[in-house]
Amino acid sequence: MKVLVTVKEVAEPEDDFQISGLEIDEKFLEYDLNEWDDYAVEEAVQLKEENDEVEEVVAVTIGPERSEETIRMALAKGADRAVRVWDDAFEAGEVLDPNAKARVLAAVAEEEDPDLIFTGVQADDDSIGGTGVALADELGFQWAAVVNAFEYDIDSGVANVHRELEGGVEEVTEVEAPAVFTIQTGINEPRYASLRGIRQAQSKEIAPKTLGDLGLDDSAIETPVGITDMYEPETEADTEYIEGSADEMAEGIAEILRKKGVAE
């Protein structure tokens, strides 16, 4: 059996940044593997390590050539190979419609024919949180969103998962494969890539694909959803700042605590 993991290279702005047009200026951005996807990769790799039946873990991403460095981290942590989809059509900007992204990922999934797909719950940068479930719908797979415990019975093809609801409550759900699971942080302890893993990753395949390679055209990612403005939120807070040295800040905080009567 095969496991597909969707991964995304996400941009993270520095503490101080500037917006130019509808984007944060490139020079204030750093790139990294999306935190949720790190857990999704780990879950897939652990499943393979624990079950001989899992033959391959394939990572799939939508990203420019730059993102190969990040995708290689997933390979260094144990994914066997990767597929990277990119096309001029993506240059127009972030695709904000999860169902548009899902059409692209589904085309890869149809070629790969996985039994299980792991995605992160959401991406750090755009926080959409819908691509995994949209992908399941597009493929006609079952799914579970926001999974923080995962057990899979290979013989029956049934996954027993916990979905992390609000307020410390978890829903226990059985889901039949083939299925997509959106993975929540904390489900496992993502490993650090070993030196050996990093070395091996250099020779693992990252196959580039265009929309055309997948039998799609630009219309697959066309969406009526678009950003028309980006700005730094105006703070409504009337926060009172305690200035000065660390000692002066401590003094100021202590004064507040005593005034509120919670500490003496």
Partner: peptide, 10 residues
């Protein structure tokens, strides 16, 4: 977007 660092109009 970006962990509440920016707001967007969509």
């Amino acid at each position: 977007m970006y962990g509440s660092k920016v707001e967007t109009t969509v």
